[in-house]
């Protein structure tokens, strides 16, 4: 099961699992790529102030329900970030597998919010476009944000439809059966509401964008 899931995932996500590379080569590569200044970026990130105090105990990896699917477990990811191996961290599939269930945060004896670090890595990967094209996880985030920015609310139906259209259009057929059953149960809402006071929010968003 584990092997299968990984093979399938690597088709979806692109990057090759780190483990499959010869260990010695990985070490040389990493030392060249280390970016000493990178860690500073996380210093004032809410929940990650104590990132340098990670003791590599592995409680996060043990608690994580998705670590069995990850190429880099949360503990190793913490080590990569702390040492400034930016490209290695941003390219890992692990950041996209995190569902932010906060099990790692509850488990961490050093009170580091690993889940918030995952969010920060996702944001940087999106900003620098370090993720496979048509990869559904960032596509979902992107569509979700566009919908909320323009309407103020999200719609399950339109979000699922737009995400699938952009990431794997063929899957739309598979979704039709589920859609039909939800429709019959009165659980699909096709109309999209907009909120009234959205303009103030949009103005503030744009102001921030200009400032950045």
């Amino acid at each position: 099961m584990r092997r299968d899931a990984r093979d399938k995932l690597s088709e979806d996500a692109g990057p090759v699992p780190v483990q499959s590379r010869p260990a010695i080569r990985r070490e040389l590569k990493l030392q060249r790529e280390a970016d000493g200044a990178w860690l500073g970026k996380f210093a004032d990130l809410p929940g990650c102030e104590r990132i340098a105090s990670c003791t590599q105990c592995g409680a996060c990896s043990a608690a994580c329900p998705l670590s069995i699917y990850m190429d880099v477990t949360p503990r190793r990811l913490m080590a990569l970030v702390r040492s400034g191996f930016r490209s290695e961290a941003l390219k890992s599939r692990s950041i996209w597998l995190c569902t932010s269930c906060y099990a790692c945060v509850a488990a961490c004896p050093q009170k580091i919010s690993v889940a918030d670090l995952m969010f920060a890595l996702k944001r940087e990967a999106i900003e620098t476009r370090v993720y496979p094209k048509r990869f559904a996880v960032p596509v979902l985030s992107d569509e979700f944000m566009n919908m909320v920015r323009t309407r103020g609310r999200s719609s399950d139906f339109w979000l699922a439809a737009r995400m699938t259209l952009r990431s794997s259009p063929a899957a739309l057929f598979g979704m039709a059966a589920i859609g039909w059953r939800l429709w019959r149960a009165g659980r699909l809402r096709l109309s999209m509401e907009g909120i009234h006071l959205l303009a103030e929010f949009q103005r503030a968003s744009l102001a921030r964008k200009d400032a950045a």
Binding site: F119, R123, I126, F144, M145, R153, I195, R208
Partner: peptide, 19 residues
């Protein structure tokens, strides 16, 4: 409005918080 759920947090933490 939307709460600024995790999908939003993934793209922009500040705006998510604003919502």
């Amino acid at each position: 409005s939307c709460c600024g759920a995790q999908a939003y947090m993934t793209v922009d933490a500040g705006q998510s918080c604003m919502l």
